[in-house]
């Protein structure tokens, strides 16, 4: 179980400070693919940064704590402070753009080896053997090791990114829109590969994407975020079949369905600016069901049964 307790992620800017993640408390069950959805600026990437422990000025975790429920090889608990020592061994990251994430002037081989210092040629050879075996599992020929990034196709490069991110079999994988830059056919291959690897390794994979269709097909759990808050979490199936938050409903309705005669509903309106003083429910201004109370009182994330939680005063039934 990965637990977030009252986590606040604050950015310091010239205009002052702004909480891009505002008092988030939630539990993530390990061994699942957890989808994170929401519009740009909702706090998805801040959540990922905090989870990864990539916290650098101007971002700070100003309140709260994350309990990873994991111990390092030295037996100590992994915390936000020491998690960077376990990057890629215990928690890894798959970026969205493979072209700009690989060093263009260094062969792929070297980029598999620079995680650690080697004491002997033999150690390097042993590691390389493992890399080759692992690449084979991912349907990649070992020849990619001798290639420079520009010599590979977009799909191959993204497979290399997946291989880099999963090589050490980390307990947690953060995939930040891993397929946005790819064409649809290649996208599907990468996503299936991720799902397959997760099933084999039984690790926890956080998958951020705008594509609700991907969430529907791939994820076990969903986290819906809106304006720096989590507004709904639960089993994906449950969320897609019975969304309780009006915002979740709006997101799902933006999905096309076969045989759907109704004109597609875009997501109307804009989330509020985090610079403004926010009172009451942050979604209220866009919500068709908002009542007077919604503008006054901020709803907390509360369980509604079946492991499903929602932050809404008048959830959909």
């Amino acid at each position: 179980m990965i637990r977030l307790k009252n986590v606040v992620g604050t950015y310091t800017t010239v205009r002052g400070t702004v909480d891009a993640l505002d008092d988030v408390t939630t539990d993530f069950q390990t061994g699942n693919i957890i989808g994170i959805a929401g519009e740009s600026g909702c706090g998805k990437s801040t959540l990922l940064k905090l989870l990864y422990g990539n916290i650098e000025y101007p971002l700070a975790m100003s309140k709260g704590m994350i309990d990873y429920g994991m111990k390092g090889p030295d037996g100590r608990d992994i915390t936000t402070e020491n998690i960077s020592e376990h990057w890629f061994k215990k928690i890894s990251y798959i970026p969205q753009s493979s072209m700009s994430s690989l060093n263009p002037v260094v062969k792929i081989r070297k980029q598999f080896l620079d995680f650690q210092d080697f004491r002997s040629r033999k150690e390097i050879d042993e590691t390389l053997e493992k890399v080759v075996a692992f690449l084979r599992e991912l349907d990649l020929t070992p020849e990619v090791l001798d290639a420079y990034p520009h010599q590979l196709s977009g799909g191959m490069r993204q497979r290399v990114m997946v291989a880099l991110g999963t090589f050490f079999q980390p307990d947690i994988i953060l995939a930040d829109e891993p397929t946005t830059a790819l064409d649809v056919v290649v996208q599907k291959g990468i996503l299936l590969l991720l799902a397959e690897l997760q099933r084999r390794m039984k690790n926890t994979m956080f998958l951020v994407t705008h594509d609700m269709g991907v969430h529907y097909q791939l994820t076990h759990k969903m986290v819906i975020m809106y304006a720096a808050k989590i507004v709904e979490t639960g089993d994906s199936e449950e969320i897609f079949s019975r969304p309780r938050h009006p915002y979740t409903k709006m997101l799902i309705e933006s999905l096309p369905r076969i045989g759907d005669a109704k004109k597609l509903q875009g997501v109307e309106g804009k989330p509020p600016s985090l610079w403004d003083e926010l009172r009451g429910c942050r979604f209220a201004p866009r919500c068709s069901r908002a009542k007077a109370e919604c503008r006054e009182r901020c709803p907390e994330l509360a369980a509604v049964g079946n492991g499903h939680s929602v932050a809404c005063l008048y959830p959909e039934s």
């Binding site: 990864y52 020592e85 890629f88 970026p95 700009s100 994430s101 060093n103 260094v106 995680f115 880099l164």
Partner: peptide
């Protein structure tokens, strides 16, 4: 500020190696 340097940092590559193999080489 390039993506590959950020990625290398998140990979846990040591700063000195980032400086030589990533920043300097490019």
């Amino acid at each position: 500020e390039e993506g590959y340097v950020l990625y290398a940092r998140l990979k846990g590559v040591k700063p000195r190696r980032i400086m030589y193999n990533y920043v300097a080489r490019n």
